[in-house]
Nucleic acid binder design. Sequence first.
DNA 1: ACCTGAACACCGTTCAAGT
DNA 2: ACCTGAACACCGTTCAAGT
Lengths: 226, 226
Amino acid sequence: MGLSRERIVLTAIEMIDEKGASTLTMRRLGTRLDVEAMSLYRYVNGREDLLEAVVEALVDTIEVPGPAELQPVDGWQAFLQLLAHDVRRLAKEHPLAFPLVATRHPAAPWLRPPLRSLRVVEAFLQGLRARGFSDRQAVEAYRSFTSFLLGHLLLESAVRGASLSPVEEPLDEGGADLPNQDQELDVENYPTVARLRTSLAEDHADEEFEEALEHLLVRLDLEHAQ
Amino acid sequence: MGLSRERIVLTAIEMIDEKGASTLTMRRLGTRLDVEAMSLYRYVNGREDLLEAVVEALVDTIEVPGPAELQPVDGWQAFLQLLAHDVRRLAKEHPLAFPLVATRHPAAPWLRPPLRSLRVVEAFLQGLRARGFSDRQAVEAYRSFTSFLLGHLLLESAVRGASLSPVEEPLDEGGADLPNQDQELDVENYPTVARLRTSLAEDHADEEFEEALEHLLVRLDLEHAQ
DNA sequence: ACCTGAACACCGTTCAAGT
DNA sequence: ACCTGAACACCGTTCAAGT
């Protein structure tokens, strides 16, 4: 029942998953752990350090395919497919936390979100080297793969997270004079959007992800063949 | 010299550009405008509304290629090229603000960051419709184009923004017991990263962007030809 | 109509003090 | 060794009051 850095980080992740990072305060976290907020500072160098630890813990759950999941004989395509889907699992399990993984400034320029840990980058590069990539090709693949993951997964998280958003719906008292972000009705002034509204609102996250991943692999294959 | 919503938003953007969104407080913004913080609430429904207005103002600077910049005879490739580069201009001009554009929850599921305004989406869809895309193709292009922009530009912003980061370097007193995010030295435990370190640290943002854009256009062309 | 003073509830963080 | 009480500086926000 004692406090520990690990317990603090896990509870912080819980709270972020429930209501978003902006509602995670040291004091509320302390309360949840049955402790005064000040006690947390024994284990954590302040709130920023805690958020960094949260990101690290999340990224640590990423499983880079190794001998257990994948024979070396399986190509780099299988390797990247498995990895991509595991990062997507992370994004889907933590839609409100994923923006942190995506946007917190990486410690080094070569730690690109969302694959922002030395362990993952090392395994990524080794995985491709072992499957026929040159050093240069592996590094280029790291760059395009991270951009691909970031774009697709953050977009998914933003949309899915919007439902769980921390902003409490203000009861509509219909009296605000200021410009309102609720543009629902203005759609009528944008005929194409209005016409395609239904189609635009459809959720095709799965297909989008698979298709874009497929194309990325094709693209990498072209460079790989050179 | 009087206060106005516009002046407030522009000053907020200035402050974010300088030190990041986390340092933008209502009170500091008031001080900068020579006014008490409470005065801002006449023009802005609180801090969240202000940030929303900041995002809106930034997105409003995106120029979707119209008759002025582009003949209808120019293909959809030229249209998307110009648009992509203008969104990239926005990201480069505001590396510390772009994460807001990227991660704030969109008002509607079809307003995908970073093209998150009705005006831009409408012009985007019309631009492609006028250049031979079907409704379905235009919507699919909107989805893949936004994912592409988000991934590449947010990654660029994160890296570039890290230099301007709001975290003040703590003078290294060399005494912290807690896990430290400064993993610089641990690189030695990751041989492949260590070996490719220099290559990984190189900034190829320009080429990456151009190349990925080129491939996206090829990919869209395949679907378009069907 | 526009800005302010005073106040409230809530933050992050430090540090001496308790056990 | 581990947690807390008290305190400080700083937040966002409301509202009655000033001009």
